[in-house]
Nucleic acid binder design. Sequence first.
DNA 1: AGAAAAAATGAAATTTTATTTCATAATTTT
DNA 2: AAAATTATGAAATAAAATTTCATTTTTTCT
Lengths: 282, 282
Amino acid sequence: MNILEKITNELDTLSKSERKVAEVILSSPSTVIHSSIAALAKQAKISEPTVNRFCRRLDTKGYPDFKLHLAQSLANGTPYVNRHVDENDTADEYTSKIFESTMASLELARKSLNSNDINRSVDVLTQANKISFFGLGASAIVAHDAQNKFFRFNVPVVYFDDILMQRMSAINSRQGDVVVVISHTGRTKSLVEVASLAKENDATVIGITTTGTPLAKECSIVLSVDVSEDTDLYMPMSSRIAQLALIDVLATGFTLRRGSKFRDNLKKVKDSLRSSRFERKD
Amino acid sequence: MNILEKITNELDTLSKSERKVAEVILSSPSTVIHSSIAALAKQAKISEPTVNRFCRRLDTKGYPDFKLHLAQSLANGTPYVNRHVDENDTADEYTSKIFESTMASLELARKSLNSNDINRSVDVLTQANKISFFGLGASAIVAHDAQNKFFRFNVPVVYFDDILMQRMSAINSRQGDVVVVISHTGRTKSLVEVASLAKENDATVIGITTTGTPLAKECSIVLSVDVSEDTDLYMPMSSRIAQLALIDVLATGFTLRRGSKFRDNLKKVKDSLRSSRFERKD
DNA sequence: AGAAAAAATGAAATTTTATTTCATAATTTT
DNA sequence: AAAATTATGAAATAAAATTTCATTTTTTCT
């Protein structure tokens, strides 16, 4: 844990003099890491042993060790955090906030993913007779993207962003088929039903959704993508990006499982697009 | 600069004994931050003053100060970098690599964006009579996503991922229309043509592409989204994610420009979806 | 190659910094 | 209000880092 947070937390377990030390440190931690124990004691108007005791109370070995912890906390700079866009933000500000929040979400999502489930998903995907990706709204584009990727693998793949098509497709699915259902909320009724229908028809259902949602309960494998809420502007933002990163992971797992010869084919697919592009001069 | 990198850089300006110190530090920096100068000297089999001189040569005030720098470098953790997926990676490894590369790309993309251009883009978007988003392949999903977002704003918006439709739409465009053309490579012939057609017909053309591409040259406003190459598996990965983040930025700018009353409407749009979802228990 | 100069190195001394000890002061409990 | 507990700092001690300086090693220049 960050030592600065720790100081704040334990502020009330400290004695009066120790609190003075804490206050000096909190008010200007970057100065403190360059101060000797004597200098800090003087600034806080207490004695050196008090500083020492203060350090020990925070589970450090002594003053130099404490400074080390402090230095590390300061170094952590701005780890990406969700920063909310504010009414009066300049373009620069909201751009930074959005990019940083997105990065923070990716970090969170990565933690919520379980490599075991990814492995199992890659297993079933590589062995599938047919792969279908279903999503609605913002998740539709994720399904769309997945189709675009898996299509390059030369496997039977479809995507639907239409409730009825999804339903028909789910009903017609069979053993050996894999249905990937994508929904951030995991509460979209029609998608939950589609998942359940596909499962009844013996398809393997992979859910890309948040942990513990109704959709998660209907799936054979759940790939949990937990991100902080997309509350800023009432529209999905980070969630779909984290889902796309997961699609990349699945696609990568797929190609790795298929071996190097398969990857040569991918290169051919890419090269086939060349004639549609303007040449690069460099 | 990271002190570990600095040590590596200056390795050949160091004397023989100092290099021994450097090697011990590089091989196990986390041990060193808990060692005294004597302990380190002993481990490197040199004298204490040598350690001290080593520290000074790296522009630190002395050994304790050096340790502080070292601690900070260690705390910085792994700044996100592009790490390439390897044939023998485990699921955990390639998942981490993909997420981290994505984050690294977002960081890069954010730097390549110019807030002035964003501001101008938001300007023209808020004043547009009609907005069209065009993309092909992986960029098609970005266009698709943009439509999804801007549709909520209750403005006339279309998206096309079909060459002919894009062409027809471009030809029919007029003053006051905004055409957003999305292409990572910026070299897709048909898209460059579409951009040029739209421009000839007096539409404002916003290009979401890499700096200095043929597409960029045809646009009224270029939003440069530079990411490191998506070379890993011959398919677009980070590029489309960075583009999506940019769409979020534009959508956010749009709503901020429109004011708070407009945002209440967005909430209504979101709430309208509620009945299609299973209730949340919490 | 060999002498002179320069640079590098470490032992010992010194200085700085941190910690411990212990007496006293402040606070809490009874 | 006395006793017990806890907090505090002065002084002593210990530890760590730095400086000084003599010695060794390396480099440069005949």
